[in-house]
Amino acid sequence: MAWFKKSKELKTDKKVKIPEGLWVKCDSCKEIIYKKEIDRNLKVCPKCNYHFRISARERIKLLVDEGSFTEIDATLASNDPLKFRDKIPYKERLEENRRKSGLAEASISGEALIEGHPVMIVIMDFSFMGGSMGSVVGEKVVRAAEAALEAKKPLIIVSSSGGARMQEGIFSLMQMARVAAAIARLNDNGILYISILADPTFGGVTASFAMLGDIILAEPKSLIGFAGPRVIEQTIKQQLPEDFQRAEFLLDHGLIDGIIDRKDIKKTVSKIIELLA
């Protein structure tokens, strides 16, 4: 569930006065870096190769051929089945996130070309309620998978999510089963599904479509897991190993196929499609 919301934004500007927006502190190596340099580098830290979180729109630009993306299911919106209310009603929270992110929901889906190969894509966006999966994210994955099956195109999903969306309760939980069932049908019909994991990917998203790829790739240093590190620490009351739940840790433990730099993702995906699909 969304364990990764707004945690460390407040810390930096106390000691060092950094002009707003010009300099950025790397989440991983803590170096202060000129923002333009990071932007030029596809939002990758030039010092340590940490891949900063980027928006779904930015990701689409990096992944697919220019001008080839057509969005589907753009108007799907949550309708608050639980009438959930935390500090504010869920409906207001959705509104607030729409305003803040410029997105209708935590994922964008559609058809596109990757170096000329027709594909269906779903891209999650962490900036919309921690990329959490409720009914809409689930539905978009199911529909994209069904469209991929129908058109016999590969499905590519880029995940970045805190997990199932608490505010839609059991409906969110059930999305895990729905999307897994949709992926099962791709398997039964020989359709390629490539899952790309970006920082962070957790909970109900990892435990459903994210770990079901024929090929699973991850961006360097991304945090990926089932339970959030804080929950684990509180449960077992031990310090966690240095690299714990980083992409490199998952690769070491045989859980993913490879770690790919952002700049190489498009090329790699295209090659896999050529070799398998």
Binding site: T75, L76, A77, M174
Partner: peptide, 8 residues
């Protein structure tokens, strides 16, 4: 199972 509005 899902609860949403709008069409694709």
């Amino acid at each position: 199972i899902g609860s949403f509005v709008g069409e694709g």
